[in-house]
């Protein structure tokens, strides 16, 4: 039975955006701090560190998760996806990202990575959401800049575009 002792650092290995990574962490180190610190994936943001604001939302094995509510040692062997893994190429945006740009779905951009990770996961499972469903899933995020209306428009537009892409494929 592996017991990781307090105060010491322990190696944790997992996949981050498809690449194997490892980090040395204390048992108490949050996944959020691990991503942002040793792994330098600073796109995931700390907004409240108590699981309410949603800025740190990532995907763990395909499901949405608050990185502040997880310990790094919990994701040993898991597959993590963050905002850095969304774009198809460094100079190209994904359909979802492009919709956010087109519809002004962001201002300061601090909450945006978490929202993108939620929508990326949600639209995969719910390709034809209506506005009410989108409001509900987005209610797990706080945005102080946009008033949410442009985010909803971006999400609806992205969903439509993704459906078209599927039907044309």
């Amino acid at each position: 039975m592996p017991r990781l002792s307090a105060g010491a650092r322990h190696r944790v290995r997992f996949a981050l955006n498809g690449r194997a990574v490892e980090a040395e962490v204390e048992p108490r180190t949050t996944l959020l701090d691990t991503l942002r610190g040793p792994l330098a994936a600073t796109g995931t943001h700390a907004g409240c560190e108590h699981g309410v604001c949603g800025a740190c939302t990532i995907q763990v094995d395909g499901s949405m998760a608050r990185a502040c509510l997880m310990l790094a040692v919990q994701v040993e062997g898991a597959s993590i996806r963050t905002v850095e893994g969304l774009a198809p190429a460094p100079d190209r945006l994904s359909v979802l990202q492009e919709a956010f740009r087109e519809h002004h779905g962001l201002q300061c951009g601090f909450c945006t990575p978490g929202i993108l990770m939620t929508l990326d996961a949600y639209l995969r499972d719910h390709p034809s959401p209506d506005e009410r469903e989108l409001r509900e899933v987005l209610s797990g995020h706080l945005c102080r800049c946009t008033g949410y209306a442009p985010i909803l428009r971006a999400a609806l537009a992205a969903a439509e575009r993704l459906r078209e892409d599927v039907s044309h494929a």
């Binding site: 017991r3 002792s5 307090a6």
Partner: peptide
Amino acid sequence: MKPASFDYVR
């Protein structure tokens, strides 16, 4: 706002 130390058993 960081946790105090603890051991972790998987």
